[in-house]
Nucleic acid binder design. Structure first.
Lengths: 224, 224
DNA sequence: ATGATATGAAAAATCGATTTTTTACTATGG
DNA sequence: CCATAGTAAAAAATCGATTTTTCATATCAT
C-alpha cells in the first residue's frame, strides 16, 4: 500500500490536537471555566477520551486544573507574557547557536524548503491556520539540530504559550511584513553560519513578535 | 477550624503523586510496558482515575504513550542524561543569578530553614524518601525568587528527570558527603550574594551529581 | 519450509450509568 | 439586615461493562 501515517490515532489524541489548536487560537475566553458537558457535545465524543485530553493539556500548561472543580482556561497576564518572551529569547538564542554549529546539508535543504512553504502560505490569504502551521514548522526546523531534545521540547511549549497571546492580538500588516522579511534574512544568515548576527536577528524577531502580542493582555485601566 | 490543606484531592491526583514518586524512584524497570490491570490492583483504584494519572505523566515526560498500545517507562539513555544535566546546569545557573538579585529577607530565612531540615534529614538514616523531599525543597527554594515561573517549572521537570537516573545509581558515601557540604556552602554564598562564586558552585554541584547518575545508564558492552 | 492469512486471547480505549462533591438558592434565627 | 444552615440542582469524578484494536499462535496454500 501507499505511504500513510504510521500512528493509528485515538479519540483522546484527536481531541487533544483539536482542543490544543482551539485553545491557542483563542476560541475560548481566557479565564473561562470549561463546561465538560458542552465540550462533549461540541466535539462529539465520550467523557473518557475528553477527560484524558483535558488532563494532558493541563499537564502541558494550556489548561488549569483544580481538584473537584474541573478545568479552566488560563488568564492572559502581562507578567506571564514577559516571562515567556524572555525565556523564548534566551532558549532559542542558545539553540540557534548550537544548530548553526551542528546543522548539515540535509538541514540546509530542509530549511530552504520550510521557508519556501512559509512564503507560499503567506501569499494565500484566508488560510491562516495553514500559515500558522508552516510558521511553526519553519521555526522548529531552524532549531532542530541544536542537539538538545529537551531544549527543543521546552521551546515548543513556550512557543505554544506565546501564540495564545500573539493570535489574540490584532493583525498589523506593516509589522507582519517586517517579521516575514526577517524569516528570509534568518535563512541567509543561517546558511552563512553567521552565528552572532543570526542570534541577534532571532532575538529581535522574538522581541518584535512580543510587541505585537502585548496588546492581547488584559490592560489595567488607569485610574487618572 | 485549624489550618489544613486547602486542596481536596481526587483519586487521579493521589495516584499521580504516587506513580510519579515510584517512577522517579525506579520502582519500575526502564523500558518496561505498564500493565494497566496490574496497576489497577496494585494501587487499588478504578480505571478512569488511573488512566487520567497516566495521561498526565506522559504529558509531563515521565512516561511514553503510544496510541492503541498503552504506556511505557522511558529507557535510561546516556545521551539523554547528558542533555538533562547540561540544561540543568545552564537553567539553574541563570536562575540562581536572578534569585540572588531578587531574594529578600524572607527568602534568606526560608533558605536557612530548608537547609536545616535537609541536614536533619541527612542525620536520620533509613528515611531516604524524606531526605529526597527535603533535598528537592532546598533546591526549589534556592531558585524560587528568580522571577520566572516558567523557568522554575522547567527546572523542576528536569530535576525529576535527572533523579530517575540519580536514584538508580549506587550510593557513595564519599561523594555524598561532598554534595552535602556543597549545600552548606551554597547557602553561605547565597547570603553573601556572591553571584559568580555561587553560580560556579551550583554548576559544580550539578556536574558532580551527574558523575554519580551516569552509572545508572545502560552501558553498551565493548566488543573488544 | 515459507509467507500470508485467519483466529482467539489479551489489552487498550471508550461508553453509559452511578456516586460524590460543589454550587446556587432559600429559609431561618440572631 | 446579616449570617448561617439546610436543600436541591449541577457538575466533577469514578465505576463497571462494552467495544475496538493489538498481539501471539495456529492454519493453510504455495
Amino acid at each position: 500500500m501507499g505511504a500513510e501515517a504510521s500512528t493509528a490515532s485515538t479519540a483522546a489524541s484527536q481531541l487533544y490536537v483539536a482542543l490544543k489548536r482551539d485553545l491557542i487560537n483563542g476560541r475560548f475566553t481566557a479565564g473561562q471555566k470549561l463546561a465538560i458537558t458542552t465540550l462533549k457535545q461540541h466535539y462529539q465524543v465520550g467523557l473518557s477520551p475528553l477527560r484524558e485530553a483535558l488532563n494532558r493539556l493541563a499537564a502541558y500548561g494550556l489548561l488549569e486544573q483544580e481538584n473537584q472543580r474541573g478545568f479552566r482556561v488560563p488568564a492572559l497576564e502581562r507578567a506571564e507574557l514577559d516571562d515567556i518572551a524572555d525565556l523564548r529569547s534566551r532558549f532559542e538564542g542558545q539553540a540557534l547557536e548550537q544548530a548553526l554549529e551542528n546543522g548539515g546539508d540535509e538541514w540546509e535543504a530542509g530549511l530552504l524548503a520550510a521557508f519556501h512553504r512559509l512564503k507560499r502560505a503567506d501569499e494565500a490569504p484566508g488560510q491562516l491556520d495553514h500559515w500558522e502551521q508552516m510558521h511553526l514548522q519553519f521555526h522548529r526546523h531552524l532549531l532542530e539540530p541544536c542537539g538538545s531534545p529537551w531544549l527543543v521540547r521546552f521551546i515548543e511549549q513556550l512557543h505554544d504559550q506565546f501564540d495564545r497571546y500573539r493570535r489574540m492580538a490584532p493583525a498589523n500588516d506593516t509589522v507582519r511584513a517586517i517579521l516575514n522579511e526577517q524569516h528570509g534574512r534568518l535563512v541567509d544568515l543561517a546558511l552563512e553560519r553567521d552565528i552572532t548576527a543570526a542570534r541577534t536577528l532571532l532575538e529581535e524577531h522574538i522581541r518584535l513578535s512580543y510587541e505585537v502580542a502585548q496588546s492581547a493582555c488584559h490592560e489595567e485601566v488607569a485610574k487618572a
